[in-house]
Design a protein around this nucleic acid. Sequence first.
DNA 1: TATTGTTATACTCTATAACTATA
DNA 2: TATAGTTATAGAGTATAACAATA
Lengths: 157, 157
Amino acid sequence: MAQHTTPTGSSSVLDQCTLAGDVVHRIMHIAGALRHYQDTDLAQLGLTPAAARALHQLDPDHPLPARDLAEQLGCDRSNVTALVDKLEQAGLVQRRTDPADRRLKTLVVTDTGRRVRDEVHRVLSDSRLLSGLTQAELTTLRDLVWKVSDGGCPEEC
Amino acid sequence: MAQHTTPTGSSSVLDQCTLAGDVVHRIMHIAGALRHYQDTDLAQLGLTPAAARALHQLDPDHPLPARDLAEQLGCDRSNVTALVDKLEQAGLVQRRTDPADRRLKTLVVTDTGRRVRDEVHRVLSDSRLLSGLTQAELTTLRDLVWKVSDGGCPEEC
DNA sequence: TATTGTTATACTCTATAACTATA
DNA sequence: TATAGTTATAGAGTATAACAATA
């Protein structure tokens, strides 16, 4: 890290308490707690967080080339190799060379992988942290987070 | 990772669409996007994410022993050493041995550190992702996330 | 030539264990 | 003996660059 000199006249204003900034801080705090619970539970399934999320992204009914998994995970192709290595060694995924384009290796979820993936999904959907909200509050919160993440209509699900 | 055998009779039920589970997924998605923006902006300040968050935790007006910073960051003492090394090399923080207990080293934020910390705070409060919400929706969202994170009353801030 | 998957390599973040200097 | 900070080390995650096989 380089020696730091004073940036252009930054004010010392502490706008800690803007409404939106406060929401951002709280969301990050909640997400951190959620991730902590998730990672602990994923470890009990014998999976590292990244491997579990890779398995979760795979669709058992529509095998995917590794390139596409990398894109879905938002990481480089080179990382997928190690993740799939782990999943393959655990018997959850199989690599199959695509006969139509032998450069591609499609990732097939095994029967065991299917079951573990369901458990991973359960872990990633665990909502014990939201248990303090009423059903009405949950619905309101869902609509708001959907609006933020711009995911379309909640009814589609 | 160990060879995986079938766990106890797990159902193949796809409860992807429970209300609360959906909210959890969305929160994680939003938090990931927020973190992506934050880490990019923090890098432009010449700071790694962890170093920036360490600086952010420090109170310029109330120097803190490294042990307490570790606790606030939720990580081990041993990691704080490297983080503070970076901050000290960047001229943002100084280590001072506590004369009352020479085992302690208190972390003093320099004048430059104060200014950079303000910028870090601005980055961590950046709410461009929430710009699609009305003021009323923001207020509702704040109340809900406060209730989830059980942080007390919003008015205190 | 361009693309896929792989390998080699490096950096960040985090944890554990052992060491030191203080108390 | 107990605690604070440090060091050494290891694992996980992610990135870039170069390579072999294939298109």
